[in-house]
């Protein structure tokens, strides 16, 4: 049984302020991701990638279709699951890295990263130590770990963002261009940390713009074009396809 089974998923926005105009972000998208595999979603800006990922996290409400997600306790349809069930899964096993850090202001980065662990019941000292370790792996200095993200550069903030998601060791990781704001060296560190999570058995769906990340992480690639799947296959074939194109 796949870890994630997305069937005929569509998302259409109805914009009431514009007289009810509708805008379809993507339509009829189907794919499965086996446990422990990484799927990369690629495509041009506006092709529906981020909307698709947000639907998987239920940050957007999908319009039609199904998102069957296998948990230890059985399969849940993330499209129709009650809000509290979605919250529970977000806390316990689904991690999401947005393009930009969204965090509580006035909280030091170490504590932002530790927060999901604390919520899951970890001891405060242990949670902070784990947060420190993850931030260090992503190349953040000890001095910065105690400061607020508001005072940081974009790349530093993004490290906090990635660290927060990885630190909680999610079983399903949703990545929305997690490495795009990072310098090459930090990008390599982030990819290594994501790969370590993969070795521990995590499944992931990620949007990446750079080939390096796709080739380092993905097992399979799904190409979105104008909201529809235009290609889906193993990463090795994608490399050939892309070269031919």
């Amino acid at each position: 049984m796949p870890h994630l089974d997305v069937r005929a998923l569509s998302k259409t926005f109805t914009m009431h302020l514009l007289g009810g105009t509708t805008l379809t972000a993507f339509a009829d998208v189907s794919f499965t991701v086996p446990r422990g595999r990484f799927l990369a979603i690629v495509g041009r800006s506006g092709s529906g990638k981020s909307s698709l990922l947000r639907c998987l996290y239920r940050r957007y409400l999908p319009s039609t279709g199904a998102i069957r997600y296998a948990t230890a306790g059985g399969t849940v349809d993330l499209l129709s699951a009650p809000d509290r069930e979605v919250l529970r899964l977000r806390r316990s096993e689904i991690g999401y890295v947005s393009q930009f850090l969204q965090a509580i202001p006035r909280v030091p980065s170490r504590d932002i990263v530790a927060a999901p662990l604390l919520r899951a019941g970890a001891e405060p000292a242990q949670a902070r130590a784990a947060a420190d370790e993850m931030l260090e792996r992503l190349g953040m200095s000890a001095a910065l770990r105690g400061t607020f993200p508001a005072t940081m550069s974009g790349g530093e903030r993004q490290r906090v963002n990635v660290a927060r998601a990885l630190c909680a060791a999610p079983r399903l990781l949703l990545l929305d261009e997690p490495t795009s704001a990072l310098d090459p060296e930090t990008r390599r560190l982030a990819l290594a940390a994501i790969l370590a999570l993969k070795r521990d058995g995590a499944t992931a769906v990620g949007i990446f713009h750079d080939r390096e990340a796709v080739e380092a992480l993905a097992d399979d690639v799904l190409v979105l074009e104008d909201g529809a799947v235009s290609w889906h296959g193993p990463v090795a074939d994608y490399a050939t396809t892309a070269l031919e194109a």
């Binding site: 926005f13 940050r59 809000d83 979605v86």
Partner: peptide
């Protein structure tokens, strides 16, 4: 709904 969903993908 979920607060992030209500604020980022409001339906009404």
């Amino acid at each position: 709904g979920l607060t992030d969903q209500v604020l980022e993908d409001p339906q009404d």
